[in-house]
């Protein structure tokens, strides 16, 4: 079975489980939980940066999803709908935590601003030779954590959870153009940070025309 067929099969199976859960079949909802708990947890963990808050969000999001199954229209995929709940819960928590600093996805950013590229260097072919798997994960997590929430969230949904641009826009209540511009900024900022860790020694090109 190719990827696309598998994808369609999953979406169909989700819709069936949602129907059964709506009709009161708790085992069907349990299956949806099992299917998506790791991804919801990972998304929340990336946005919030710690296990305890991610677990709270996982519980709150799944509870809300269960209580509001009737409002799930079935026009979008179940996971997109679920992740939207989880992202909202995560951002609320983030706002509470940083009362002095407003955190909002609507934060006004200069979308016309040119993306910044400073570090231009080829990467090692095999970073695995220099770093252990654990170290690589640490480098990746630290880089993502250092992004502003508005960039981080878009990046996580698009490039880690692999939602489409349209699904990400829907999940975050943003325009497609805003998702695209934030995604590019996020990718370039990460590229910059990872280049510092993964660049091949000795042949750095400085500056950019």
């Amino acid at each position: 079975m190719d990827g696309e067929q598998q994808y369609i099969k999953n979406v169909d199976a989700d819709a069936e489980l949602v129907d059964r859960a709506r009709a009161g079949d708790l085992a069907a909802f349990g299956e949806l939980v099992r299917r998506y708990e790791s991804r919801v947890y990972r998304t929340a963990r990336h946005i919030l940066g710690n296990d305890e808050d991610a677990e709270d969000v996982l519980q709150d999001a799944m509870l809300k999803a269960f209580q509001h199954l009737d409002s799930f229209q079935g026009q979008s995929k179940f996971y997109t709908w679920l992740v939207r709940i989880a992202v909202n819960e995560s951002l609320m928590k983030l706002r509470k935590r940083k009362t002095s600093r407003t955190v909002s996805l609507d934060e006004n950013i200069e979308t016309d601003e040119e993306p910044i590229v400073r570090e231009i260097a080829v990467w090692d072919d095999n970073p695995e030779q220099r770093y252990s798997q654990g170290e690589i994960r640490e480098i990746l997590d630290t880089a993502v954590a250092s992004l502003k929430p508005i960039f981080r969230t878009v990046f996580i949904l698009r490039d880690v959870e692999e939602l489409s641009t349209e699904e990400t826009a829907e999940a975050l209540g943003l325009s497609v153009a805003a998702v695209k511009s934030r995604l590019l900024r996020a990718r370039l900022q990460l590229r910059e940070k990872l280049t510092r860790a993964f660049k091949r020694k000795g042949d750095q090109i400085l500056g950019y025309v």
Binding site: V122, W123, I136, L140, V160, R187, R191, L194, T195
Partner: peptide, 20 residues
């Protein structure tokens, strides 16, 4: 180089398995 390293950046994150 920018294209190549940005592609690698995306790949390296996509290749991350969700931790249990």
């Amino acid at each position: 180089v920018v294209l190549n390293t940005t592609q690698k950046t995306i790949q390296v994150y996509k290749g991350m398995d969700p931790e249990p």
